[in-house]
Design a protein around this nucleic acid. Structure first.
Lengths: 243, 243
DNA sequence: ACCTGAACACCGTTCAAGT
DNA sequence: ACCTGAACACCGTTCAAGT
């Protein structure tokens, strides 16, 4: 007889199956073993039932994943008014909106970086849960606070979210076992490819490889977010707007 | 002569198994039935062998996918020197570099849009094939031609590619069967969520939903690319540079 | 040496059948 | 009515065994 379900999460005798419980259990497995392990079958097993039972509460895997993301988003948004805004109402000093926007996006990025699989899901199935809507609103508000034109701000929110989600999705699950280079592997493979480029065929690259590969990921993220906001601010949309 | 690989599934008696053949067959299946059908098993079957045989030539599915992408990239770049650069050296008129850069990115986006699964792969495993390197070089060259500072251009290439790849990955495979809303489904679900937002909790959204949802995808892509280039151009990096 | 049949260890989803 | 065992239709990858 196998130990079955070993220690892991406490087992309160009766899980009592519900959408909430399923989402909670999924988050637990995800935190412990990664999203890719949080399969329907695995979650069902952790809940002491068969996979078919889950389909009473969630439509499919994609829906389950997006419920999980929205749940995590809730804690971000719940925590942020204090964290991001500070207690003082403070006539926000110039540019304050920008660093708050940056902090918000960094928080979102943080969630997605921790669970790249979720970022992948979010890319395929745009987050539309209640907390995602709040995030949308918060970002829009901050851009408007910065006097970004409405039409640009409106499209800008999407651009920013798209970028952050994409970059988080990029972080492929580094299989813990085996590979020695680990997280650096992806980057160094690119580095190798770029360094190995034929100078004749790729002259610009040959001249500037170091610049292309320079910088810490953190620096690059910071720069990218600023560049995005700057671009959003100054680029006119084809929408006539309210003139 | 030889329309080469014209009507696909010709069966020349002896497939003669090789890396090239495997990639070619994968592209064929992908074009006809979508990347998600181009599994190791399916490709092997089309090649009249067992899946194990493929592992003699490709390390795994991810590697096969990236070989496919690089192959497609080759046709893009092969076609473009004439198209994008023009035969005449021509003191490029102001901004010419920008529209050529845009065209190049649009071409890349086109490939990825046609095969969102590849975009997904490219997000996880950065393209590092020979043609990806050429694309990198070409983009860098165009930015430099536009007098973008080297450090900004160098980071900008990554930002642009990242964005385009991400947005292409977003286009989830719309299962042809069943769902009535089809490709609009994703967007309209977001529209529903945004429209349904509580005006109290999401005041900015309530005031500007229409702006958020306005515009054709094409318009939004065009705008996004311009915003990115603008942002890249004006945003200083923390890298000291050769100043 | 080169290749591969067959197995291993999984998936998501459905549905007829039980309670 | 509510739930689920068992099956369906797949996956990627490995490796012992054949040629």
């Amino acid at each position: 007889m196998a130990p079955s379900a070993a220690s892991r999460r406490e087992r309160p005798a009766k899980p009592a199956l519900s959408r909430e419980w399923i989402v909670a259990e999924t988050i637990g497995i995800m935190r412990d073993e990664g999203l890719e392990k949080a399969t329907m079958r695995r979650v069902a097993q952790a809940l002491d039932t068969g996979p078919a039972s889950l389909y009473v509460y969630v439509a499919n895997t994609a829906e389950l994943h997006s419920a999980v993301l929205d749940e995590l988003l809730g804690t971000l948004l719940g925590a942020s008014p204090d964290t991001l805004h500070g207690a003082a109402p403070s006539e926000s000093s110039a540019g304050e909106w920008q660093s708050r926007l940056e902090a918000l996006l960094r928080g979102y990025a943080g969630i997605l970086f921790e669970h790249p699989g979720l970022a992948r899901s979010a890319l395929l199935l745009r987050p539309t849960g209640p907390n995602a809507v709040l995030l949308y609103d918060r970002m829009l508000g901050l851009l408007l606070e910065g006097d970004v034109a409405v039409d640009r701000a409106a499209w800008g929110v999407d651009l920013l979210l798209q970028y952050v989600t994409g970059i988080a999705a990029e972080h492929s699950t580094p299989r813990a076992d085996g590979s020695p280079a680990d997280s650096a592997a992806g980057m160094s493979e690119l580095a190798n490819a770029l360094h190995g480029a034929d100078p004749e065929a790729a002259p610009h690259l040959a001249a500037h490889v170091d610049a292309v590969l320079s910088g810490e990921p953190e620096q690059r993220l910071t720069w990218a977010l600023r560049a995005l906001v700057a671009g959003i601010t100054v680029t006119p949309t084809p929408i006539t707007g309210e003139a």
